[in-house]
């Protein structure tokens, strides 16, 4: 995790977002029916938007991300960590995979923020933590409204 400069930090974030795009592309290749594919395509488009956003910040040399961390609903922490995307994946399976993925990114940036010695760099990672928390919250809200309605 060589992220000791501003550019390296954003490169890392860019790499994470591109990996997320690849993650949904991989799931989509596995999908067996239209509903799965349209949902995965929507989520992949969101990640592509994040790639574009971070690329733009890198080009400008500044991070334009809100430092406000989203309220944690606590769902991700309690979910079964094992991801089992299969050809028959349900909406629940897709959302769980998305939530866990955002959670992992958030944890990584948290560690990098803790390890960063330069205040500027620390701030970049803290804002990335906040950004990932908002992504996770988006999927958690979807999970609450669409999946866990009766619980």
């Amino acid at each position: 995790m060589d992220a000791t400069t501003f550019a390296a930090a954003l490169d890392l974030a860019l790499g994470r977002e591109k990996a997320a795009v690849a993650f949904y592309r991989e799931l989509s290749a596995m999908a067996s029916f239209a509903a799965q594919k349209s949902t995965l395509a929507e989520f992949m488009a969101m990640e592509e938007g994040h790639v574009a956003m971070i690329s733009g910040m890198k080009a400008k040399g500044s991070v334009a991300l809100s430092p406000t961390v989203a309220v944690d609903l606590g769902l991700a922490a309690r979910m079964d960590a094992e991801e089992r995307p299969t050809a028959g994946m349900t909406f629940q399976d897709i959302l769980v995979a998305a939530i866990k993925k955002e959670e992992r990114s958030g944890v990584l940036y948290e560690r990098l923020a803790e390890a960063a010695s330069q205040p500027g760099l620390k701030s970049v990672f803290e804002r990335l933590v906040a950004e990932e928390s908002r992504h996770k919250r988006y999927f958690e809200d979807l999970y609450e409204s669409e999946i866990s309605k009766d619980n």
Partner: peptide
């Protein structure tokens, strides 16, 4: 805790638009 749809019978070629299952 909740139920969802089974949309496995709708293929992309059927042209039925689907958003979030």
């Amino acid at each position: 805790i909740g139920q969802g749809p089974d949309l496995s019978f709708i293929a992309e070629s059927d042209g039925v638009p689907v958003k979030r299952f």
